[in-house]
Write a protein that binds this DNA or RNA. Structure first.
Length: 321
DNA sequence: GACCCGTGCCGCCAAC
DNA sequence: CGGTTGGCGGCACGGG
């Protein structure tokens, strides 16, 4: 699906940083870099005019809800105010109509509550800031709220945790539409880390930073350099001088995920790079990434990226080199 | 897609 | 006594 028309829905009390993140990613022309995409970008609100923000000053929003028609992506930033208050019916209707018409809907932080009121979270996996997660789940019992992750891409509906996770989600959208290379380029311009996976923990369960000597950083680096090898949990644990059980616990404490899942994520990233930057056959890429054979690569690629390696290559390969 | 076997993950508990 | 470790068993999932 093409992504050209992006709309931001700014409720009263809109959070300026979250709005800014969305505007930075989708709303800023970058004529000096032709590789980076341009969007048809606009901010809209229920009653155009002055909209109060979370930080005491107002902003002028030109467009009304009719601007949502035909949008490919609708982004809803966080807002300050009562999350449980049901928003204006015309706002909810506009969101629902746009969603039915095929628009993807994205929220940052408490923006998820607007999606919830519109019924867009029912039956879906989603997330929000960990401080709000319980309230979101209570208010919308049919939603499957995962309070641990940075963001969730449920296809039609994308939700993210607090503030900075909005950056990660926006870059994730760019990555899945335009490829690793474009996303990395944009991340570099924004001076943010190129890729934090959605499954990464919102916070790690460690009050005091571990001393470098006992952290898993070195092991993770080593794993990234040896993705083609057979990295069984048992051997990794031995390498870290721990029992498999303790290793698993420490791994989750530091990365927020499990060894195997982390490994698969890294392997997918490598596969994406090789698909984009080389002409290696799928089988060779599978071997290089540690998936062994092409069917296994296809299997995980489908699960993690929702498409096939060939299709991904056709979309994103840069033959010009 | 249906299978089967092996592996990874996690809750539980006992032992420091 | 609370906290950490490590082993066991059940279960789910990956891979053939």
């Amino acid at each position: 699906m093409a992504l050209t028309t992006v709309r931001v829905l700014a409720p009263d009390g809109v959070a300026v940083f979250e709005l800014g993140v969305i505007a930075e990613v989708f709303g800023m022309p970058r004529p000096d870099d032709p590789l980076l995409p341009d969007f048809d970008f606009a901010v809209c609100t229920v009653r155009p005019g002055e909209v109060p923000t979370s930080s005491g000053f107002g902003i002028t929003v030109e467009h009304g809800l009719d601007a949502l028609a035909g949008a490919d992506l609708i982004a809803v930033p966080a807002f300050s105010g009562d999350e449980e208050r049901v928003p204006e019916p015309e706002l909810l209707e506009a969101l629902r109509d746009a969603s039915v018409a095929g628009a993807r809907v994205l929220s940052v932080c408490s923006g998820a509550f607007l999606l919830g009121h519109a019924g867009l979270l029912d039956g879906r996996r989603c997330t929000t800031h960990w401080l709000y997660a319980e309230r979101l789940q209570r208010l919308f019992p049919a939603a499957r709220v995962d309070p641990r992750v940075l963001y969730v891409d449920d296809g039609q509906v994308l939700t993210s945790a607090g503030t900075a996770a909005g950056i990660d989600l926006c870059l994730h959208v760019i990555r899945s539409e335009f490829g690793e290379k474009v996303a990395n380029r944009l991340a570099r311009r924004m001076v943010v880390p190129p890729h934090r996976d959605g499954g990464q923990a919102q916070y790690v369960d460690m009050p005091i930073p571990v001393r470098p000597a006992e952290s898993l950083d070195d092991l993770l680096t080593w794993m990234r350099e040896h993705l083609a090898d057979d990295l069984a949990v048992e051997t990794l644990a031995a390498r870290a001088h721990m029992s498999p059980r303790t290793f698993a616990r420490r791994f989750r404490a530091e990365t927020g995920t499990t060894p195997f899942s982390w490994l698969t994520g890294q392997r997918i990233l490598l596969a994406q790079r090789l698909l984009e930057e080389t002409d290696l056959p799928i089988d060779a890429i599978a071997t290089r990434c540690g998936f062994g054979t092409a069917p296994v690569l296809r299997h995980h690629f489908a699960r993690w990226r929702g498409t096939t390696p060939q299709a991904y290559r056709r979309t994103f390969a840069r033959r010009s080199a």
